[in-house]
């Protein structure tokens, strides 16, 4: 078994003083089972703050499953059990005292297929803040505008905020979903193959957005597209058969991987 602890990137270490010692997310010896089937083996990975970390690997390798352990979305599936730890801000999120709902406010998630709610654009964005108790209309409007601007969607939809979100194009829908996540003001944004259902142009827009967003958020993105990982991520972890083969700075992974399996994968020999 090859488990490589991530060496923290020197730039983030220096940039954040004392807090920089602790990575934003650290998983330690994480195992996940669907009933008897073990889907994740001993995953240990550090995700530094304000960077984009890409999870790559062939389909079925466990990268999405791992992503979903970070905001405990796997809790929704019956028969899933987990051992090991996921520390976020130093706190083990699988600790009994952790409130899953609070956790998910801090950790937003964008899904593979855009999943706008069947309501207006405005209501989609306002949904999260309202659920968290915000009632004041002017404040909600502020959040809607800010989130849509951050998601680079404002100019396209500002004249039709109250029309149905289902009428947007696929790429717009996905950026709406990103805006919806940002409206809750998370610290971390998880993205599960966010561009796999989009055309190349829409993909490009989302990629630009991701690069922009990392200034404010820590981003973990699952992608099956290696070029995408190379373009937008600072660090990359390569998954195979439920294990991490290698995790390092993206530049190193793509130019000088330590492991033959990684090399085979990025040079397109399987997956």
């Amino acid at each position: 078994m090859t488990v490589i602890e991530l060496q923290r990137a020197s730039k983030s270490e220096q940039g954040q003083g004392g807090a920089g010692d602790v990575p934003q997310i650290r998983s330690k010896n994480l195992n996940l089972f669907y009933g008897d089937f073990q889907a994740l083996h001993d995953i240990s990975l550090d995700v530094p703050k304000n960077q984009v970390t890409a999870l790559i690997g062939p389909s079925g390798c466990g990268k999405s499953t791992f992503l979903r352990t970070l905001n405990r979305m796997n809790d929704l599936i019956s028969g899933v059990s987990i051992t090991g730890e996921v520390l976020i801000g130093g706190q083990n999120i699988y600790d009994k005292t952790v409130d899953v709902v609070e956790l998910r406010k801090k950790i937003g998630m964008v899904f593979q297929k855009p999943n706008p709610f069947p309501m207006s654009i405005y209501d989609n964005i306002a949904y999260g803040p309202r659920a968290h108790g915000l009632k004041k209309k002017s404040r909600i409007m502020e959040i809607v505008e800010r989130s849509l601007r951050q998601a680079a969607l404002w100019d396209e939809v500002k004249d039709r905020l109250h029309s149905s979100a289902m009428g947007l194009s696929g790429g717009q829908q996905q950026r709406l979903c990103i805006a919806r996540v940002l409206a809750v003001e998370p610290e971390i944004v998880l993205m599960d193959e966010p561009t796999s259902a989009l055309d190349p142009l829409a993909t490009l827009k989302v990629e630009e957005l991701v690069t922009e967003l990392k200034k404010m958020y820590t981003i973990v993105i699952v992608t099956h597209n290696m070029q995408q990982a190379a373009r937008i991520s600072d660090r990359t972890a390569f998954f195979l058969n439920g294990k991490i083969v290698e995790a390092d700075e993206t530049a190193k992974i793509f130019t000088n991987p330590k492991h033959k399996q990684t090399n085979d994968y990025i040079s397109g020999r399987f997956g």
Binding site: N71, M73, L76, V101, E102, L103, R104, K105, K106, G108, M109, F111, K113, N115, F117, P118, Y127, G128, R130, A131, H132, C177, R180, V181, V184
Partner: peptide, 20 residues
């Protein structure tokens, strides 16, 4: 996907059911 989208925003199950 709607249930997941809502829960991932940090809403409770009942909020998701009631609101969405």
């Amino acid at each position: 996907s709607l249930r997941e989208g809502s829960l991932a925003l940090g809403t409770t199950k009942w909020q998701t059911i009631k609101g969405l």
